[in-house]
Nucleic acid binder design. Structure first.
Lengths: 144, 144
DNA sequence: ATGACTGCAAAGACTTTGCATCTTT
DNA sequence: AAAGATGCAAAGTCTTTGCAGTCAT
């Protein structure tokens, strides 16, 4: 007998929060987001539901950024950009490796490949700009 | 004035341990590996040196697998396969995205892209085999 | 001698989990 | 009423860090 799944408004709103943003949220982000409308929400519930949604295939994990696991409600194939400076994650919808790649690797290496992730790293616009400002300040200070 | 860097046998052996394996070790793995020959080694020292090596560009982090950060002493471009079952990480030396990809993304999205990672997920041979055995057992049990 | 490196243990950050309670069916 | 979902807080895991002692230069 399979385990029954019951409705819960909190669960529904947690999923909606993830699906309604493109910021690739962490558990903490979801918690803070829903706290105002769900005063009694517990962080443990957010974690449990994130695990639940991933098992159900409703969301995917896009890995750990700055120590926190990040999730994505978009399931269509796409790549990500991670800013190593501020931790923001951006979708790159136009960057998508060949769909046959998984099968190619499966055959070539004899592995049961299920999916792949293509993730770019660097600095987002605002961090790149901030850093150049900071460098200018340092240059000004050292030349002063 | 730049900070001086001094020799340490422990540091050298930590680096050698990472460079001498293709298992993409975690801090704990390195610690256990060196413990016999370095009885006084501390896990904190391993962590500190991993950070140091990454800053020096001697190793790279390949992300968090099963809660533990994993490192790679191979710096030439290549992809990875992560077994979501046992956590093992394999090199895929023949799978390497176009070298211009970083620049393409930089231009297309206006980001300062520094690098990218292509990671495949699935089950390694032994886990796929073990699971099929396990499934057989379950089938046998339920039909018994 | 200076200051870099380490051991140790405490602290920190993130996530999981046990149990009593509340809610859905 | 039965069983799933949640709140709370404790526990668990991995990693970082402060401080005193050690070692390389």
């Amino acid at each position: 007998m399979e385990r029954a799944i019951r409705y819960s408004k909190k669960r529904a709103d947690i999923l909606a929060a993830i699906q309604g943003t493109n910021c690739h949220p962490s558990a903490e982000w979801v918690y803070q987001q829903l706290k105002p409308t769900h005063p009694g929400l517990s962080l443990g519930t957010v974690y449990r539901n994130l695990i639940f949604f991933r098992q159900q295939g409703l969301i995917q994990s896009i890995g750990v950024v700055g120590g926190q696991e990040r999730f994505d409600g978009t399931l269509t194939p796409h790549s990500h950009f991670v800013c190593d400076c501020c931790g923001s994650v951006l979708d790159l919808p136009d960057i998508c490796p060949d769909g046959d790649l998984d099968q190619t690797v499966s055959r070539q290496y004899g592995l049961a490949v299920q999916r792949h992730e293509l993730t770019f790293h660097g600095q987002c616009r605002s961090c790149a700009q901030a850093q150049s400002h900071h460098q200018n300040q340092i240059e000004e200070e050292s030349s002063a």
